[in-house]
Computed example of a mutant assay.
Amino acid sequence: MALQRFWANGEALPAETIAEIHDGLSLALDALDGANVRRVNVTEAKGHLRWALRRASTLVEATQ
Rank of each mutant, 00 (worst) to 15 (best):
M1V: 13
M1T: 11
M1N: 13
A2W: 03
A2M: 11
A2T: 14
L3A: 14
L3K: 14
R5V: 14
R5Q: 10
F6V: 06
W7S: 10
W7Q: 10
W7Y: 14
W7C: 12
N9G: 13
N9H: 12
G10F: 04
G10H: 04
E11N: 06
E11G: 07
E11P: 00
E11A: 10
A12N: 01
L13A: 13
L13F: 09
P14Q: 07
P14W: 03
A15T: 08
A15I: 03
E16T: 14
T17Y: 02
I18V: 15
I18T: 12
E20W: 01
E20S: 04
E20Y: 01
E20K: 15
E20Q: 09
E20M: 10
E20C: 04
I21M: 05
I21F: 08
I21L: 10
I21C: 07
I21A: 06
I21P: 01
H22V: 01
H22D: 03
H22T: 08
D23R: 07
G24I: 00
G24S: 05
G24V: 02
L25Q: 09
L25P: 03
L25W: 07
L25A: 13
L25I: 14
S26Q: 12
S26K: 08
A28L: 03
L29D: 13
D30W: 01
D30G: 10
A31S: 15
A31L: 12
A31E: 14
L32C: 04
L32R: 07
D33I: 02
D33A: 09
A35E: 05
N36A: 02
N36M: 01
V37H: 03
V37E: 04
R38T: 14
R38C: 05
R38A: 10
R38M: 09
R39F: 11
R39Y: 11
R39T: 14
N41Q: 13
N41S: 11
N41C: 03
V42H: 04
V42D: 05
V42F: 05
T43Q: 08
T43G: 02
E44I: 00
E44Y: 01
A45T: 03
A45N: 04
K46I: 06
K46G: 05
K46E: 12
G47S: 06
H48T: 01
H48S: 06
L49G: 02
L49W: 02
R50D: 08
R50N: 07
W51A: 08
A52Y: 05
L53K: 00
L53P: 00
R54A: 11
R54N: 11
R54L: 06
R54Q: 11
R55D: 09
R55A: 11
R55V: 06
A56Y: 00
S57Y: 02
S57T: 03
T58V: 05
L59R: 00
L59W: 02
V60K: 04
E61C: 14
A62D: 15
A62R: 15
T63K: 14
T63M: 08
T63R: 11
